[in-house]
């Protein structure tokens, strides 16, 4: 009796240490992430800028939803016709332009690399090479591509002229879609290797007996892909999608350093929402209040995307099964009551 009481006390004593081990994480999180987030949300409802004429800071003073009004309603009174939503739109477009080809190519490569009939011996080398751009400093890659696509003497222009594809050098960074295309391409090029490695690991995680069974049953390669590989890859595809969407919405380094002005040439058409947010906060009148409201919009959109993707990718069969189970249980309960 006494012994068990002692034992009990001992376990309680040990569990106390759990708090000590996780304390640094939570303290640092509270100071450096949670409080700044709350602070940002608070600032979004405050008037706070610097009067450039006298160089004095105004605010922060509570001003209700005034910041959100300027974020949502344009000068012409139209909803969403603002620079915030233009930059959000730019961000989403450039993310889609890189993500769709990225996931398709990564999936294709993952299937090739795991194909047991057509073995690829050099896949280790391929993985190392195609993954490589992912770990190189994005700032450096951006300036590199800026130099490569330079007008009129950048290597790309030189090559296009030498090959006779163009008659005169092309101003890539003065065309909306060319610049967006380059930014999307850089992102695609940096990330498809990563996605491919993740998806390859995912396919290898599927039990080989499932593929064999499908093959014995006479399923074609495409049928196997559609009915076995894709459904079982769903959690990993979801992970990739959410990760990429959230990362894509924060896109900053590459568009910031790719064009000369750094403000999303041409005509702010490649300015992403994080770029705009920082321009508001740290240039000119330093509109911290409006920048915070923009951050809140970004936060809500980020949250919305991750929830939406979870909803789309949810396991429909599992839900159906659960529903059926519930119905059966209800039926049984009803019968039992009778």
């Amino acid at each position: 009796m006494a012994k068990t009481a002692k034992q009990k006390r001992k376990t309680v004593e040990y569990s106390r240490y759990g708090y000590y081990f996780i304390a640094p994480f939570f303290i640092v999180f509270a100071i450096f992430q949670l409080w700044p987030l709350i602070y940002t949300i608070g600032l979004a409802f405050c008037e706070n800028y610097t009067d450039t004429m006298f160089n004095v800071e105004v605010g922060p003073v509570f001003n209700g939803i005034d910041n959100f009004k300027t974020v949502f309603i344009g000068k012409d009174g139209a909803l969403f016709n603002t620079y915030t939503f233009l930059s959000l739109w730019n961000t989403i477009i450039m993310w889609l332009m890189n993500f769709i080809p990225q996931i398709l190519l990564a999936l294709l490569l993952a299937i090739w690399f795991t194909d047991t009939r057509v073995k690829m011996k050099a896949q280790g080398a391929y993985k190392i090479m195609t993954f490589m751009p992912n770990i190189i400093t994005a700032a450096t890659i951006s300036v590199l591509f800026y130099s490569l696509f330079n007008y009129p003497n950048g290597p790309v222009n030189q090559l296009l002229l030498e090959l006779g594809i163009f008659d005169e050098p092309f101003r890539f960074f003065q065309r909306k879609w060319a610049t967006r295309g380059i930014i999307s391409f850089i992102n695609f090029w940096m990330w498809y290797g990563n996605t491919m490695v993740v998806l390859t690991a995912g396919v290898l995680g599927i039990s080989p007996s499932l593929f064999e069974a499908a093959r014995v049953d006479g399923a074609s390669s495409f049928q196997i892909f559609k009915k076995v590989t894709l459904p079982l890859l769903r959690p990993i595809l979801l992970f990739t999608l959410v990760n990429s969407a959230i990362g894509g919405l924060q896109m900053y380094d590459i568009p910031k350093l790719l064009t000369i002005s750094g403000y999303g040439d041409p005509d702010y058409m490649t300015r992403t929402i994080t770029m705009y947010m920082r321009e508001l906060a740290f240039t000119g009148a330093r509109q911290m209040g409006k920048a915070s409201a923009t951050s809140v919009v970004l936060f809500v959109v980020t949250l919305f995307f991750s929830l939406l993707l979870f909803y789309i990718m949810r396991d429909k069969d599992a839900i159906k099964e659960r529903k059926q189970n519930k119905a059966v249980q209800k039926e049984l309960a009803r019968k039992g009551a009778k």
Binding site: F29, F32, Q33, Y39, G42, L43, Y252, R278, F299
Partner: peptide, 17 residues
């Protein structure tokens, strides 16, 4: 849950703090 929150969204508050 907090793995999903990017640092960028709180950067204005972070800077001011």
């Amino acid at each position: 849950a907090i793995m999903m929150i990017p640092t960028q969204v709180s950067s204005i508050g972070f800077f001011r703090f």
